[in-house]
């Protein structure tokens, strides 16, 4: 661990000013991921700018029927917020599937978006890793890669994004509100996280001097037909091998609208417009879901230990869509997959 200075931001403008003035500074809000990485010598900021007291803690309805979530709303508060529980239960379930209640009490909404991969080699500062040290090589491709990606990988990185919440946000087509020296802008969640290509050190399209201020949810919440299924190596408090967020709008047995995203399989929440096209207008049954799964997993490739994830993801997609269609979302506490 290297030493760092600590300052507090007085408001959003001050936060931007401070980070623009010090390229080796980082914002800290919940700290659950950043302090972990600092202690492992993976993150080496020389200054932490405390944004935890900025007034970004509200959840409010928007004029167009959606919800605006302040970037500093703790994960737990968001998951249990009456508006979210009632209108976006998929988001609630995905948040509660991640980490532990203690960590969720600390972790912020914005921080959840920018958490970094759990790849074993990224975390071990003595091994080569292009994400941690660009140009040093990827140890995971020929290494212990059970938890690594099967989609959107590159020769330089096969890391996954570890968030559960973001998988639901992808399905809900959330919009990320950010502010930087040039002013405020929005980024669609689909464009927020990047694929590794040959710059795996850059996780997101957030500029280094920008701050996330809010996440906006469009009105469509899929509160009737949804499910979040997380598959992991123990029944709680573990990162996903594969997770699936599914949301449907049904007209009888016919799918009017469909969204599916995968977690634990790529450098970002994985969606495929083509897969959703084959769902729309079709009967909500296993064969339709299997078609969508095939398209979602097109181009999937394993690296040895994680080969099984392709077949596992296929079955998980079908199962989660079935749960969504039945209106029986996966329970968080009862671990039986129905």
């Amino acid at each position: 661990m290297i030493p760092f200075q600590y300052t507090r931001a007085s408001d959003v403008a001050d936060a931007i000013k401070q980070i623009a003035a010090d390229p080796s500074a980082k914002f800290i809000a919940g700290g659950t991921n950043l302090l972990d990485l600092i202690k492992y010598d993976v993150a080496t900021p020389t200054r932490l700018i405390d944004i935890s007291r900025l007034p970004l803690g509200n959840v409010e309805e928007t004029a167009n029927g959606g919800v605006l979530i302040g970037a500093l709303v703790p994960n737990t508060d968001l998951a249990y917020h009456p508006l979210i529980e009632a209108r976006y239960p998929l988001l609630s379930r995905s948040i509660l599937a991640g980490a532990s209640q203690q960590l969720r009490n600390m972790a912020s909404t914005g921080g959840n978006l920018v958490q970094r991969t759990r790849c074993f080699y990224f975390y071990d500062a003595t091994t080569p890793c292009n994400k941690r040290e660009p140009g040093s090589g990827c140890s995971a491709i020929d290494g212990i890669n059970r938890i690594n990606a099967i989609l959107g990988t590159s020769q330089s990185c096969i890391a996954t994004h570890p968030s559960d919440m973001c998988v639901a946000l992808a399905v809900l087509e959330a919009i990320v509100h950010v502010t930087g020296p040039a002013g405020a802008r929005t980024i669609a969640l689909a464009d927020f996280h990047r694929l590794p290509d040959n710059t795996p050190q850059i996780d997101t399209n957030l500029e280094p001097d920008e701050i996330i201020t809010a996440i906006e949810l469009p009105a469509k919440g899929f509160s009737t037909n949804y499910s979040y299924l997380k598959i992991r190596d123990r029944l709680s408090y573990a990162f996903a091998l594969v997770s699936v967020a599914a949301a449907l709008e049904l007209d009888g047995d016919t799918i009017k609208e469909a969204r599916v995203a995968l977690g634990g399989v790529a450098h970002k929440p994985w969606r495929s417009p083509a897969a959703e096209v084959v769902l729309r207008g079709q009967r909500a049954d296993a064969s339709t879901f299997a078609n969508a799964a095939d398209i979602l997993l097109r181009g999937a490739r394993g690296f040895g230990h994680n080969d099984f994830k392709i077949g596992l993801a296929r079955r998980a997609i079908v199962r989660t869509l079935s749960q969504a269609a039945r209106g029986t979302p996966q329970s968080i506490s009862d671990k039986k997959i129905r």
């Binding site: 600590y6 800290i28 700290g31 659950t32 302090l35 972990d36 932490l48 405390d50 935890s52 737990t76 532990s100 209640q101 203690q102 960590l103 009490n105 600390m106």
Partner: peptide, 13 residues
Amino acid sequence: GRRINSCLTLAVM
């Protein structure tokens, strides 16, 4: 009143 992991919390914050 909320449970948290004190190991990932900076005292100064």
